[in-house]
Design a protein around this nucleic acid. Sequence first.
DNA 1: ATTATTGCAAAACGTTTGCAGGTTC
DNA 2: GAACCTGCAAACGTTTTGCAATAAT
Lengths: 147, 147
Amino acid sequence: MATTDVQMLQDGLRRGRRKLTRPRQAVLDTIAEADTCLSPAEVYRRAKARYPRLGLTTVYRTLELLADLGYLQRVHGDGGCHSYAAVQRHHSHHLLCSCCGRTEEFACGSLDPLVEALQATTGFHIEGHILEMIGVCPSCRERKGQG
Amino acid sequence: MATTDVQMLQDGLRRGRRKLTRPRQAVLDTIAEADTCLSPAEVYRRAKARYPRLGLTTVYRTLELLADLGYLQRVHGDGGCHSYAAVQRHHSHHLLCSCCGRTEEFACGSLDPLVEALQATTGFHIEGHILEMIGVCPSCRERKGQG
DNA sequence: ATTATTGCAAAACGTTTGCAGGTTC
DNA sequence: GAACCTGCAAACGTTTTGCAATAAT
């Protein structure tokens, strides 16, 4: 994690009178360095390498906190919705590879017309959405093509 | 459930050498009549009124089966992704009311340009997506406005 | 010093599985 | 009557909770 990121995290935490602790750093660093989305158990396994005293309970609590603060986002996949990935921008979405689990972040433009239309036809006031794309990443495509 | 729906269900099941049983009818009817998405536990509670011998295990198995056949769809919400709603068309999406839980089905047009753009920039081959809209339904808006 | 955070152990929870008996085709 | 489906009870993995000890401000 770059220095500015530590700074941003620290600021974000301070705003809510929260503390920057080693377990929290370990969890965030772990997810930031992964290029896939990770389940709580997997975060625990990896983050424990950085900070061996880490407890699973703390991982759960930290994932929730960091997601609330916007540093992480829950990723919904076909199998479930209990994995997390890092986000650079607030409210972004993920493209996930159904083959290797790799994730790629993307911004959602082009959804506005749909939102407008739905609001008009249904009378709902739309406040948010969940959007994930599922596909096969370039390297898996290549591997499949050759294998 | 209308007669044609029973017919369709029966056909769908037969195609996979599956049987039309009372528990399965009870589960499907329950979800078809609800205007919200339902958790497995809630389906169990309601469907048991129709068929008291029903077991929770069967509800889980039936939800999976009917979702595979395309009669139900898992709905992803902020809280989780373990609720199911009926679908008229295959691959549709839901608008869900964060206030009362009501769901409304909608088709996803307008996503194609985004898919195209993502495929071009990332090299992923996109095969599917998860999309849910979250908002407040007309009657909840009214209630809030008055209360 | 004050307050938030941690890790542990245990509890609670939702979901899945093996299997004998029952139901549908 | 063959194949499939069911419900039960038990097993399972995941998530949450209470609490005394610890670490950050």
